[in-house]
Amino acid sequence: MQFLTYLVRGISLGSVYALIALGYTMVYGIAKMLNFAHGDVIMVGGYVVFFAFCKNGFNPWISVLIAMGACMLLGITIERVAYKPLRGTPSLAVLITAIGVSYFLQNGAMLLWKSDPKSFSSIVGINGLNLFGGKLQISAETIVTIITSIVIMIVLMWFVKKTKPGHAMQAVSEDRGAAQLMGINVNGIISLTFAIGSALAAIAGALLLSSYPTLMPTTGAMPGIKAFTAAVFGGIGSIPGAFLGGILLGIIENLSKAYISTQLSDAIVFLVLIVILLVRPTGLLGKKTTVKV
């Protein structure tokens, strides 16, 4: 039963990673860049929910919607101001800029909201489950997080595979020039991608903080790196891959905390990543990138 408890907690944490990883993977798949500021967008989303819900008593749904809107605007602005001018330059320049944006957001949050930790209260208003006569307790946050991440993954896959803007995204991902020849506004599609990724980050922030209620300007940094790892683990660019990678990462992290060592759990996570990448360089579900003639 202990094992099941750890497993469920792992899946719950993994679902948060999955939500963040979905944002990473979308942006990477379509804009072909690693948006290292993604984790910090989560933090901003967390603060928005904190002020709306915890401080001002807004309805939790409304609070999350406000946070999604705010993060979408933030994501689009970051892309327009920081990344777009660098399109076509070596990817290293973009990477360094993304790290810069990440610090900018963290320091901005420190200025605005101070660095003292804020105590977040859960946005989930329902009760948890007690199974096996109370031996296995599953918190409401866990249930909501897992369901949310599954639903979002399915909706995203449907969106990309079945809708017109989704097809346009795939076209931009494969060949920007040819996409323009179809009349696709590449800038618009990239903005849309950042908007979706950032909205997911807001949801992830609200759910992360509902389970782990300490909010600081650096709150997004570690989950951001873990989720990036998860996205690479699952095959960056792949939507189901990001989901699978996130869940597995959460499980591995929690089980190694429980059975091996709390201090070493992160090291173990990365060890597993390295082994997987040695065996499958494209990640679990990643496609080989086809080289064009």
């Binding site: 017109k164 097809h167 346009a168 795939q170 076209a171 494969e174 060949d175 020039g177 040819a178 996409a179 020849l181 179809m182 009349g183 696709i184 086809t290 064009k292 003639v293």
Partner: peptide
């Protein structure tokens, strides 16, 4: 004014039908 580019540049991850639909994207 449409262009059929050198090297074809079809979207290999999309079906024939979806490629054609994208051709009509801006209509």
């Amino acid at each position: 004014l449409a262009q059929c580019p050198e090297g074809r540049r079809v979207f290999s991850g999309l079906t024939v039908q979806e490629n054609l639909e994208l051709g009509a994207y801006a209509r």
